[in-house]
Design a protein around this nucleic acid. Structure first.
Lengths: 212, 212
DNA sequence: CAATAATTTGGACAACCGTCAAGACGGCTG
DNA sequence: CAGCCGTCTTGACGGTTGTCCAAATTATTG
């Protein structure tokens, strides 16, 4: 393609290219979303491109057309997953007018996401573990981890603010605590432990006043 | 074999059987230990029986003779790994005569294991994530998690005792906190983040007095 | 020392994997 | 309408996987 076009012709070329790029990217996300279905069901280790294609409306060739290889696809999946996750509690944080309101709103969302999106969450933990082996995943995973930490920190600071206090520990420690609790609860929940969710809620309810 | 043997003959038969069983089991552990080498290097998803065999002194057929299938082998690996892990801090806990002594002993071991046994630890996180997909892993993983929680609890109660206090939070919350911190530090360490270990030590040093 | 059992070997098998490429399809442009 | 380009389908490829098995080897027993 004529990269050296100038003036109006150049602008038209550029516009057409960005349009195509956007379309291309939208398709990538469509495919990534379909792949997430299967990945959430089977996990990274057991998921093949063919299985992904079979559980979707696409053929396995399309995936190779839009992604350079399997890692590229899964990186795209992880990155896309991030955007949906990080804003989960933002509405609760901004609308809550008291500590109790924030607590109950947070706990409700926590329980709902643990129950309804267990497959996506277990995929996240799977991929985070994969990042310990596969360098190609690390950048994205570390970035998502940072933004999850920031998400927890927003909740904590708002909770503290509503009590005219400041959080008693660092963002890293707070995130580690909630992440650890959630991970443990998720495993128990997936193992059909009926008490997993209520136990998590009890624990968090007890913990919140002590950390802020 | 003559199961209905009685008296002395019976006892001899039983003795021979248990001896054989023990030998059989010892071999299983030998094989599991060899498998752990490769599993720690490649992770669950990328490890095949042939790869395990090639990186060891055994042929791939032996593994199938001692284990009914791949899951059986890996379950055995996990179970064996457990025994080595859980006692890591016990000596420090029993010999420490002051809070500072316990703190420094704990931190030293923590840093050492994060640096020297990173591969085994990442395998543990990998397998714990696999348990969220593979029911066959769940029982063993949940059991190990419980005993790791108990391990942390022993440290915490001893630390509290040395200050004539009681731990300020539940065993589950304490374990979640330390596990979360360790997991995050491990990922950063594997990503060649020089500050991963010192940051973890700082965080734990700051945290210990606040939780007991 | 034979004979029986336990262990080990290494190859065969079908199924599956990621990757690739040749060609078909359909819309857009000149 | 012809030709091109981006998109997509389909099937084939070499390699790897878990599993199994018959034969060889070693250990144990009578």
């Amino acid at each position: 393609m004529a990269r050296q076009a100038t003036g109006a012709a150049h602008r038209v070329t550029v516009a057409a290219e960005t349009l195509r790029d956007e379309k291309f990217n939208a398709r990538r996300i469509e495919l990534a979303e379909a792949a997430l279905e299967t990945l959430g069901e089977l996990g990274f280790a057991r998921t093949s491109l063919r299985e992904i294609a079979q559980n979707s409306a696409f053929t396995h060739g399309v995936f190779h057309y839009y992604f350079s290889d399997k890692l590229d696809l899964i990186c795209c999946c992880v990155r896309h997953y991030k955007a949906k996750c990080v804003t989960r509690y933002d509405e609760v944080v901004t609308t809550a007018r008291s500590r109790d309101e924030l607590t109950e709103g947070f706990l409700a969302k926590l329980a709902a996401t643990l129950r309804d999106e267990a497959r996506m969450h277990r995929l996240w933990y799977d991929l985070r573990s994969q990042a310990m082996f596969e360098p190609a995943f690390r950048k994205d995973v570390l970035e998502i981890d940072k933004s999850l930490e920031a998400m927890i920190w927003r909740i904590a600071t708002r909770y503290a603010e509503l009590g005219n206090r400041k959080p008693a520990s660092s963002p890293a420690a707070l995130y580690a605590l909630f992440d650890g609790l959630f991970q443990s609860a998720l495993l128990r929940h997936l193992a059909s432990d009926e008490k997993a969710v209520p136990d998590l809620l009890d624990e968090v309810r007890r913990l919140l006043p002590t950390i802020c």
